[in-house]
């Protein structure tokens, strides 16, 4: 359903590209995880798919196809039609995505009404319900809160709730559980996998948690310095990889009862 073909992403004309020659194909209902070095271009890849690279960022080579259509040729208007319903995204920095001077509720209602035919009241109720699904009890209270009144992980769950409203066909998730405690992380991961089971949603997820990537994905891509350093299924990455960088990452994963420094 999604095909990324040999793309390069540049933030300035002369400099070295942030992403170079990146290709990836994702089928309906498939889950793919991007892992790898901080600054290696993971966010740039999925933002390129979403058509919202920050500032001067541009896709300088290659193409991206969604159900056969080139996403690079989409206009703002085309995006408005599919954003949220067909493709949606959970941002790495959910706090920064929210408008600091408006309540969660007013932003959520606006978002829901922009993409579906709902009255204000229906949209409000839908919002409350989505928040509760995202492990935020007392959805009414959250709706009335401003972003600064919420903890880091609560803002992240608000982002998750936004992204799941319309059961998108493709979900792009940039470190969606990094600010959550591990019991909640487990709950959110289950919800994402349920979305795939029930609605055939395809997911591209960025994470630094290799065990989590191994648990949920059909396919893992390891990135380093703008390029794909390694890719394959769980068994390949965990047990048969020849790539030095993959081995280095695996050896740095902390484990319970493992090494102790003090």
């Amino acid at each position: 359903m999604l095909e990324i073909q040999n793309i390069s992403v540049n933030y300035n004309k002369s400099g070295k590209p942030a992403v170079e020659n990146f290709s990836l194909a994702v089928k309906q209902g498939e889950i793919c995880c991007l892992v790898g070095e901080s600054g290696s271009g993971k966010t740039s890849v999925i933002r390129a798919v979403m058509g919202n690279l920050s500032r001067q960022g541009r896709v300088t080579r290659g193409d991206i196809f969604f159900e056969g259509d080139s996403l690079l040729s989409y206009t703002a208007n085309d995006w408005r039609k599919i954003y949220g319903t067909e493709i949606s995204m959970i941002f790495q920095d959910s706090g920064a995505m929210l408008n600091p001077i408006r309540t969660i509720g007013s932003q959520f209602v606006e978002y829901i009404r922009a993409h579906g035919t709902y009255t204000r009241k229906e949209a409000w109720e839908k919002g409350v319900q989505m928040l509760e699904h995202a492990c935020l009890p007392d959805g009414e209270h959250i709706m009335k809160s401003y972003p600064f009144q919420l903890s880091g992980g609560m803002k992240q769950r608000v982002g998750i709730a936004f992204s799941m409203v319309f059961k998108p066909r493709l979900l792009l998730a940039d470190e969606p559980t990094s600010a959550l405690d591990i019991t909640m992380q487990a709950q959110m991961i289950r919800q994402m996998m349920k979305l795939r089971e029930e609605y055939g949603t395809s997911i591209i997820m960025i994470t630094h948690n290799l065990a989590l990537a191994a648990y949920m994905s059909d396919h893992i891509v390891v990135m380093r310095d703008g390029k794909i350093a390694d890719s394959g299924d769980r068994d390949h990455i965990l047990h048969h990889s020849q790539a030095e960088y993959t081995k280095k990452l695996l050896s740095a994963v902390p484990s319970l009862g493992g090494d102790n420094y003090v």
Partner: peptide
């Protein structure tokens, strides 16, 4: 306060 969650495991280390 939660300074390592945005870093890859090797930089975390």
């Amino acid at each position: 306060d939660e300074i390592t969650s945005a870093l890859d495991v090797s930089v975390q280390q």
